[in-house]
Nucleic acid binder design. Structure first.
Lengths: 145, 145
DNA sequence: TTAGATATTGATAATCATTATCAACTATAA
DNA sequence: TTATAGTTGATAATGATTATCAATATCTAA
């Protein structure tokens, strides 16, 4: 099931309505590979569809998060950014505190241990978010000088 | 080194000044085991020291985070909360999406694998944040009914 | 296909959190 | 003690998010 189907099923299942605006916001969101803020997504949307309002974009982002096609990423700078999961596997983030660059990382081993840990507490895992903060190779070299 | 020493050393090393207000905000913060917002901490501070302003509390929270005695925790509800590390070991969070309750979890194994992964990317780890979202035992039982 | 019920939209106002400003004050070093 | 520069509290400014509402669009049931 792709992201679009997933979102539309979610909307329908919730008794909400499928609208042109929601579809367009979703399309624009899926078409970018950046981690966008609501404002940035709004700007992108406006380039193609000038009639869509900020509130609609914000509301749609919230829905997209609930539906699971979108998730919030926080890199410690206070801004709220969102990324989609279309064509992505799940991944975590490795963020440089110095230059702000980040890597998307993934380790099946890490996932496995996490699963085991969560089950030990009797929880059913829905999702998780791991952000590692540190210094990237370039910045750590600079600092040592 | 306890949290108070750590904070004061940090302040001094940065060329900042030790003030009564900062000390009091820190004391009140360390005295609670809740995950507080700035506003909540401000309210707590005011109960004991009515002269301290909101801005001072907010500024001190920022300093406490930089110094490492405090860290931000986000439970997906949009509010910015802070917890201190006094008398705590490092831990991650297991958060129930249904009732909002959470557990503080820790696994040395998880930490080890994470370290290895980070090194593989050439990064130097400073800190990390793992939040697992799901259903707690009680809520998952309810849902199955 | 149509009508009625109700969700949605866009614009904007309201709210809330965070940050900036500044004059008065105070910690610190010499 | 004094000069310097950081700090404070009050409040204004800013930014982000949410609420409001009249007009409009969607969906369901008949």
């Amino acid at each position: 099931m792709n992201a679009k189907e997933r979102f539309e099923k979610f909307v329908t299942r919730k008794g909400l309505r499928r609208t042109l605006q929601r579809e367009r916001v979703l399309e624009v969101f899926l078409a970018t590979e950046r981690h966008v803020t609501v404002q940035e997504l709004y700007d992108l949307v406006r380039k193609k569809h000038s009639g869509i309002g900020y509130a609609t974009v914000a509301r749609t982002v919230k829905l997209m998060c609930e539906s699971g096609v979108c998730r919030q990423v926080d890199f410690g700078d206070g801004s709220h950014r969102f990324e989609h999961k279309h064509g992505h596997e799940h991944h975590d983030h490795l963020i440089c505190l110095e230059c702000g660059k980040f890597e998307e990382i993934y380790s099946p081993e890490l996932e496995k241990i996490q699963d085991r840990l969560v089950r030990k507490y009797g929880y059913i895992q829905e999702s998780h978010k791991l952000d590692v903060f540190g210094l990237c190779p370039r910045c750590s070299k600079k600092k040592r000088k």
